Simulated assay, not measured.
Amino acid sequence: MKKSIAIFAAAAVLLSSAALAQSVGEKTGVNSALGISPSTADFVKEAAISDMMEIESSKIAQQKGSAEEKKFAGQMITDHGKTSSELKSMVGSGDVKAEIPAALDSSSQSKLDKLRNAKPEDFSGQYDSMQVSAHKDAVSLFERYAKGGDNPKLKDWAGKTLPALQHHLEMAQQMEKNRK
Rank of each mutant, 00 (worst) to 15 (best):
residue 111 K to H: 04
residue 143 E to L: 06
residue 16 S to Y: 07
residue 50 S to E: 09
residue 39 S to W: 02
residue 39 S to V: 02
residue 73 A to E: 10
residue 88 K to D: 05
residue 30 V to K: 05
residue 18 A to D: 12
residue 121 E to N: 15
residue 147 K to F: 08
residue 63 Q to V: 14
residue 121 E to S: 15
residue 96 V to N: 12
residue 102 A to V: 10
residue 21 A to H: 08
residue 58 S to D: 08
residue 95 D to R: 14
residue 138 A to F: 00
residue 100 I to L: 13
residue 171 M to N: 00
residue 33 A to I: 12
residue 57 S to F: 01
residue 63 Q to L: 11
residue 37 S to A: 15
residue 137 D to Y: 03
residue 176 E to Q: 13
residue 38 P to R: 04
residue 103 A to T: 13
residue 49 I to V: 11
residue 121 E to G: 12
residue 78 T to F: 11
residue 71 K to R: 14
residue 72 F to V: 12
residue 75 Q to L: 14
residue 75 Q to Y: 11
residue 139 V to P: 06
residue 85 S to N: 13
residue 89 S to L: 02
residue 63 Q to R: 09
residue 46 E to R: 14
residue 49 I to D: 00
residue 174 Q to W: 06
residue 154 L to K: 04
residue 32 S to Q: 08
residue 150 D to L: 11
residue 141 L to D: 07
residue 117 N to W: 00
residue 58 S to P: 12
residue 127 Y to P: 11
residue 53 M to A: 03
residue 27 K to L: 11
residue 44 V to C: 06
residue 9 A to E: 06
residue 124 S to P: 12
residue 173 Q to E: 15
residue 142 F to Y: 15
residue 118 A to Y: 05
residue 101 P to T: 01
residue 149 G to M: 09
residue 17 S to Q: 03
residue 47 A to I: 04
residue 165 L to G: 04
residue 17 S to D: 01
residue 102 A to L: 13
residue 115 L to S: 06
residue 170 E to Y: 13
residue 84 S to I: 06
residue 124 S to F: 11
residue 152 P to S: 06
residue 16 S to Q: 12
residue 14 L to F: 11
residue 28 T to K: 05
residue 90 M to K: 01
residue 101 P to W: 01
residue 78 T to E: 15
residue 124 S to E: 12
residue 175 M to K: 02
residue 168 H to G: 10
residue 135 H to L: 06
residue 83 T to R: 13
residue 125 G to F: 08
residue 70 K to W: 14
residue 145 Y to K: 03
residue 13 V to Y: 12
residue 81 G to K: 00
residue 139 V to D: 12
residue 137 D to Q: 14
residue 60 I to D: 08
residue 49 I to L: 11
residue 66 S to K: 01
residue 72 F to N: 09
residue 86 E to L: 05
residue 168 H to W: 04
residue 100 I to T: 07
residue 123 F to I: 04
residue 95 D to H: 12
residue 36 I to Q: 11
residue 25 G to Y: 01
residue 149 G to Y: 10
residue 160 K to Y: 02
residue 65 G to M: 08
residue 138 A to C: 04
residue 167 H to N: 14
residue 65 G to R: 05
residue 45 K to N: 09
residue 143 E to H: 10
residue 102 A to G: 15
residue 158 A to N: 14
residue 115 L to H: 07
residue 164 A to T: 15
residue 55 I to L: 14
residue 146 A to V: 02
residue 155 K to H: 06
residue 146 A to D: 03
residue 117 N to V: 01
residue 147 K to M: 10
residue 59 K to D: 03
residue 113 D to F: 11
residue 79 D to Y: 08
residue 148 G to A: 03
residue 101 P to E: 01
residue 62 Q to V: 04
